[in-house]
Design a protein around this nucleic acid. Structure first.
Length: 424
DNA sequence: GTTCCACAGGAAAGCTAGGATG
DNA sequence: CATCCTAGCTTTCCTGTGGAAC
């Protein structure tokens, strides 16, 4: 970006430190102070004092949109709970599972069994009567279940099973584990278990088996989105810890908060934006982070999201998008559905791929429109019919990189020239 | 006012992969 | 193993339509 001249040390010397410690801005960091979540903390704490008294805590269902502090709050409370449990010498184990990663019945049960086994072994390396480690695959599910029961019963304890992103189980069709997990207590004598489900999807509950809803939903805690002042507050606290003094002014934080609040009050997004702005300032060797950096970072984050979205597009959609990109590069005239279809089908034939129908391509264009990769509005050209006028919403170099267009564009000229003849 | 283009976009049937089930 | 189910695409068939040209 900038010219690379001057000695190495010279450059380093003039570098102004922006960050004190950027780790505090990362989504993995769990603060021990969660502003504006007092009510939720209170609700959850009331539920989770039970194990400290040796009682079984209720199952809890925690829901709220992304970046509303669900996971952070629950993890924070779980840490406290385990600590306090040690103090009053109650054995409380928390097993944290992310259902996006561990997303089948088998793997959830197996992971639970193995984690608990690991914890016992850690404490007492030559523990006897330990069942074998459950292999990642191969056993019948009910055998895994009975091993899990066996391990649970080894000691008197209370086990809290934390299922993060529990809504992912539904799409994977693994939601019947929930039924098993919520009834596990009836097969246990010494140990008590409780399930905590965390979901981003507010519509998750109605999709569940009613039996699971009644047991998992014993208690429900809702995490509402943060509003702009609240996000600002959170950012301020974190910024104090992570930035050097004086490199940040209030306007920067306010802008980050405003961007995030305009979405759906996603604090994670706001922190991410702030970190990116800081890193940008650092790269530019600026002495302060300004609102300009925030705006730049905002666009960068948006572009990255878009690029990722394009990269993970199905092949056919990529080809449709690529066709539109090629057309836009070649000519100024407005692009219509028919134009895209011509180029698209030529591309498919060149690559020996199946050519989808016009109807489908029209649908794919609409999907790309909804994604925001392009704008397609229906216009009428009178006698010359109706079509969607397509305008790309992405920089073509970046988009083509994301599509990996070299794979597809082999003989560009024949596509565009045949196109030219048709127009001619 | 009518025509008629070049599509839009709804409905429903067909196809397919993958997974569950007998 | 065959068979059945399901979800997600895709095709087929279809009716609808804004406005320039006639």
């Amino acid at each position: 970006m900038k010219k690379e001249s001057g000695g190495l040390f010279e450059k380093l010397l003039e570098t102004q430190q922006i960050f004190k410690n950027r780790e505090y801005l990362r989504p993995t960091y769990i603060p021990d102070n969660l502003p504006h979540r007092e009510e939720q903390i209170d609700q959850l704490a009331r539920i989770w004092v039970a194990p400290l008294r040796g009682e079984t805590p209720s199952n809890v269902f925690v829901y709220g949109k992304a970046g509303t502090g669900k996971t952070a709050t629950v993890k924070y409370l779980m840490n406290e709970l385990e600590k306090t449990g040690d103090e009053v010498s109650r054995k409380i184990e928390v097993i944290h599972l992310n259902c996006e990663v561990v997303n089948t019945k088998y793997r959830i049960l197996a992971t639970l069994a193995n984690e608990l086994r690991g914890k016992i072994q850690e404490k007492d390396p030559d523990a006897e009567d330990l069942p074998d480690q459950v292999p990642m695959t191969g056993w019948p599910t009910d055998q895994v279940y009975s091993v899990l029961l066996e391990i649970l019963e080894l000691e008197e304890q209370i086990v809290i099973i934390l299922l993060d992103e529990i809504d992912k189980l539904i799409s994977k069709g693994a939601d019947d584990v929930l039924y098993v997990l919520t009834r596990i207590n009836s097969d246990l004598a010494n140990t008590k278990t409780a399930v905590v489900g965390i979901s981003n999807d507010l519509n998750f509950v109605p999709q569940l088996d009613p039996r699971v809803v009644s047991s998992l939903g014993e208690e429900e805690v809702l995490f509402p989105p943060y509003n702009a002042p609240q996000i600002e507050d959170i950012l301020k606290k974190r910024a104090e810890m992570s930035f050097e003094e004086g490199v940040l002014d209030d306007a920067v934080i306010r802008l980050c908060a405003a961007h995030a609040a305009r979405g759906h009050g996603d604090a994670r997004q706001a922190l991410d934006l702030l970190r990116n702005a800081g890193e940008l300032a650092e790269q530019e060797r600026a002495t302060k982070v300004t609102t300009k950096h925030v705006t730049k970072a905002f666009h960068k984050v948006e572009r990255d999201k878009m690029e990722e979205a394009i990269r993970t597009l199905p092949e056919q959609s990529k080809l449709v998008l690529l066709s539109a990109l090629l057309l836009q590069e070649r000519k100024a005239r407005k692009i219509g559905t028919g134009d895209v279809y011509d180029v698209y089908s030529a591309l498919c034939r060149q690559n020996g791929l199946e050519v989808l129908t016009r109807r489908r391509v029209s649908g794919l264009i609409s999907e790309l429109d909804m994604m925001g990769v392009l704008n397609a509005r229906v216009i009428s050209k009178g006698r010359y019919g109706r079509t969607k006028e397509i305008e790309l919403n992405v920089e073509s170099i970046q988009a083509r990189a994301a599509i990996e267009d070299e794979m597809y564009v082999k003989d560009l000229n024949s596509i565009t020239s045949s196109k030219q003849e048709k127009l001619g």
